[in-house]
């Protein structure tokens, strides 16, 4: 079933105006839900909306982009929320979709309060059932599957990366760009963004949205080279446990878990990771879980699809070399 009101998607982008990976997945989901009602995008004008991005959006089926020209920094959640409220009204949309990130959830909470919308975070699926949006999501560290219906007329849903596969529309459309001048309230300006430093790209896929992730824990004893080597053989992102980030073996942004990044890649490989509940909270919803650990009693084996009791310093390099050989 599809909906009758347009669906609006927040088009997260990098400072130089490239779409963030999962946005294309969310647009694909929006298109499936919207049917003839149309998929519209919102673009914060802190970066230029280039012709290549517009062509990409057209291929994905986005008919119109509301370009937010706000008189305050849209990185501030209160500012972004007010801008999104105006975009929702301008678009006549009944659903706002965003990628699940801490920043977007901050704005989602505000938009929901201001518009009377129901909000669901971290959805891994969304459908229309009897005229209501019903989101699926896992809870309790990936151990329960739930479905949650929005009972209000407007819905705000944040969608996890890798929930759907991005795909082009049957036929590309011409994407119209409409400027939306946004004047935010004095209240929204009361926080000052003193500094914002973008993290430099690592050259590997982004951890939060990667299809494959290789994570290292205390068992690496600070030597992440086997983890990085296997990651590169798989084209994967590198992640870590909090022990590894606290030790300074790798940056804090690599922390997977309840208080770090939540991931659900198609494939997760944990090496020298015990599988503490705090870590599992961020990765247990992964498609396939592989564990390499020298302790046969490590809890991660309880959730692993493929477990190897062994030394990561021999198993990982062997696997990486074999994968490279098979690829030729």
């Amino acid at each position: 079933m599809t909906t009758t009101a347009p669906v609006l998607v927040l088009l997260d982008h990098t400072p130089d105006g490239a779409l963030r990976g999962p946005v294309r997945e969310v647009v694909t989901l929006a298109r499936e839900l919207a049917g003839n009602a149309g998929v519209l995008g919102v673009w914060a004008a802190d970066a230029e909306l280039g012709a290549d991005v517009l062509a990409d959006l057209g291929a994905l089926g986005v008919t119109r982009v509301h370009r937010l020209v706000a008189d305050a920094d849209t990185h501030l959640s209160a500012v972004l929320a007010e801008a999104l409220e105006q975009a929702l009204a301008a678009a006549g949309a009944g659903l706002l979709l965003t990628v699940s990130s801490f920043e977007n959830k901050e704005a989602a909470a505000r938009v929901a309060l201001a518009t009377g919308a129901g909000v669901v975070t971290d959805a891994d699926g969304l459908e229309v059932v009897d005229g209501r949006y019903v989101a699926s999501k896992t809870v309790f560290a990936g151990t329960w599957n739930t479905r949650c219906a929005v009972t209000a007329p407007v819905a705000v849903v944040t969608v996890k990366a890798n929930a759907v596969q991005a795909s082009p529309a049957a036929a590309p459309v011409a994407t119209e760009v409409v400027d939306l001048a946004v004047t935010v309230s004095a209240v929204a300006r009361r926080v000052t963004l003193v500094e914002r430093v973008e993290r430099p790209a690592s050259g590997r896929p982004d951890l939060g949205s990667a299809h494959v992730v290789v994570a290292g824990g205390r068992g690496t004893e600070g030597d992440f080279s086997p983890v990085e080597d296997l990651a590169d053989a798989l084209g994967a992102a590198v992640g870590a446990t909090r022990v590894a980030t606290d030790e300074g073996w790798i940056g804090h942004d690599a922390q997977i878990g309840q208080t770090g990044v939540t991931i659900s890649p198609r494939l997760y490989v944990g090496a020298g990771v015990s599988g503490a509940v705090h870590h599992r909270g961020g990765m247990q919803a992964s498609g396939t879980i592989v564990a390499v650990n020298s302790d046969p009693d490590a809890p991660i084996f309880e959730i692993a699809d493929f477990g190897v009791v062994g030394d990561l310093f021999t198993v990982l390099p062997q696997a990486a070399a074999e994968l490279r050989r098979l690829k030729g």
Binding site: A112, G116, A117, G118, V119, V120, V134, T138, G142, T143, W144, N145, T146, R147, C148, A149, V150, T151, A152, I289, V290, V292, P296, F301, I303, A304, D305, F306, G307, V308, V309, G310, D311, T314, V315, L316, P317, Q318, A319, A320, A321, E322
Partner: peptide
């Protein structure tokens, strides 16, 4: 404004493999 309409414990993962490295675990992985 939201209502949980379904909830079920996730079924256990099937066809799980656990092996001990005997020198070829990397190849098998």
């Amino acid at each position: 404004r939201t209502e949980v309409v379904d909830a079920a414990a996730r079924p256990p993962r099937e066809n799980r493999v656990l092996l001990t490295d005997e020198g070829d675990a990397g190849l098998r992985l």
